[in-house]
Write a protein that binds this DNA or RNA. Structure first.
Length: 366
DNA sequence: CTGGGGAGGGGGCCC
DNA sequence: AGGGCCCCCTCCCCA
């Protein structure tokens, strides 16, 4: 007994999930375009991807071998088994680039396709129609990338629809819950969420990490040549200098337009003396949210939170951290070690910061 | 309801 | 560039 369309339906679902960014656990960076996808799907389609996604949530592809528009086709092929030709390039050029990419990515099925398959068949054309909303939205085209001019319109037009889907309670569980869950022996659950909180924290448009408005980060210039930004991280600069705020805001589920506009205004505003000095003291902007940092290392560390990169995993519970030091701290939860002792009352703490806040209690007038 | 403690996350800074 | 540490904010639990 076998359901005739089972595989097809499954793939269709997965592709729709990709379009929404639902359960996507890996980001593929091609030049300055970001594509979200599922590790399982990528791993199943190519040994090369399999090795890449094994340990990383963020994959940078060689731009010599693949460009964003080709990779978009590749990704569509992986999720649909169909090849949709690119309209903005000659099919010869496109097919050649596709073959190069397929070979580079070790997508043997794709690499072995006869040329005729690359032409848009009536069938694929119809698929293209049905799936265009989701397929074309699987990436973000970032400023400076002119490969997807026509697609940007589709991207924009699909934004509204996707905003509605973003409001639906289908994302991963809120971070707060996860964190709390961590204390209730639900760590493994959290681990399975892959990119986890930052993941759904991102301003998704049909699973796409939303690119900026034009000229977004150009005002500050200099810091990053390949400035891709998103409208995430409406910041902290004015008030909530805090990550929790940040994530809470995002957990709200929606990235309201006001935020975007607000930030857009900030960044596009003429640079007054204060903003210039701000730029001088914080010369390292985040490519994703535009937040400025004093040191490159701080900025790259910050980027990890955008990208959901948590390389440091607790062997005991599977909880993952963005920093080694956090893991070290966390391990004391398991070991019961409390190295920080209050000299006034003898209270012991696993973390120094908690000792400090405890000391404040001793010293505060109240 | 409130205060204290535990813990996750972020940024700054030094090495 | 990355590690380590400090400081801060916040959330949640619990007494």
């Amino acid at each position: 007994m076998e359901l005739p369309n089972h595989a097809k339906q499954l793939l269709l679902q997965l592709n729709q999930q990709r379009a929404k960014g639902f359960l996507c656990d890996v980001i593929i960076v091609v030049e300055n375009a970001l594509f979200r996808a599922h590790k399982n799907i990528l791993a199943a389609s190519s040994i090369y991807f399999k090795s890449l996604v094994l340990h990383d949530n963020l994959i940078n592809l060689d731009t010599e071998m693949v460009n964003p528009s080709v990779f978009r086709q590749v990704l569509d092929f992986i999720y649909t088994g169909k090849l949709l030709s690119s309209s903005d390039q000659s099919s010869e050029q496109n097919f050649s680039a596709l073959l190069t990419a397929a070979s580079y990515l070790q997508l043997h099925d794709l690499a072995a396709l006869p040329h005729s398959n690359s032409q848009e068949s009536p069938q694929s054309a119809s698929v293209s129609t049905t799936n265009s909303a989701s397929l074309d939205d699987s990436s973000t085209t970032l400023p400076g990338v002119d490969t997807c001019g026509s697609e940007n319109m589709e991207l924009n037009s699909s934004c509204k629809a996707s905003e509605e889907t973003q409001n639906q309670p289908e994302g991963p569980p809120p971070q707060k819950k996860s964190r709390q869950g961590a204390r209730k022996n639900e760590w493994p659950k959290k681990e399975t969420s892959g990119l986890k909180s930052e993941d759904h924290d991102r301003p998704l448009v049909n699973g796409v990490i939303v690119g900026p408005k034009e000229g977004r980060s150009s005002g500050v210039g200099g810091g990053s040549s390949s400035s891709f930004t998103s409208d995430q991280c409406k910041d902290e600069e004015d008030g909530g200098e805090n990550g929790q705020d940040h994530s809470d805001e995002k957990e709200g589920g929606t990235f309201v337009k006001e935020e975007d506009e607000e930030e857009a205004e900030d960044l596009s505003a003429p640079m007054g003396p204060s903003s210039i000095s701000h730029w001088l003291t914080r010369p390292f902007p985040c490519n994703i949210c535009g937040k400025m940092f004093t040191q490159r290392g701080t900025m790259t560390r910050h980027m990890r939170s955008h990208l959901g990169l948590k390389p440091f995993a607790c062997e005991e519970c599977g909880m993952r951290f963005t920093r080694q030091y956090r893991l070290t701290e966390h391990m004391r939860v398991h070991s019961g070690e409390k190295p920080y002792e209050c000299q006034l009352c003898g209270g012991k703490f696993t973390q120094q910061r908690n000792l400090i806040s405890h000391l404040r209690m001793h010293t505060s007038p109240s």
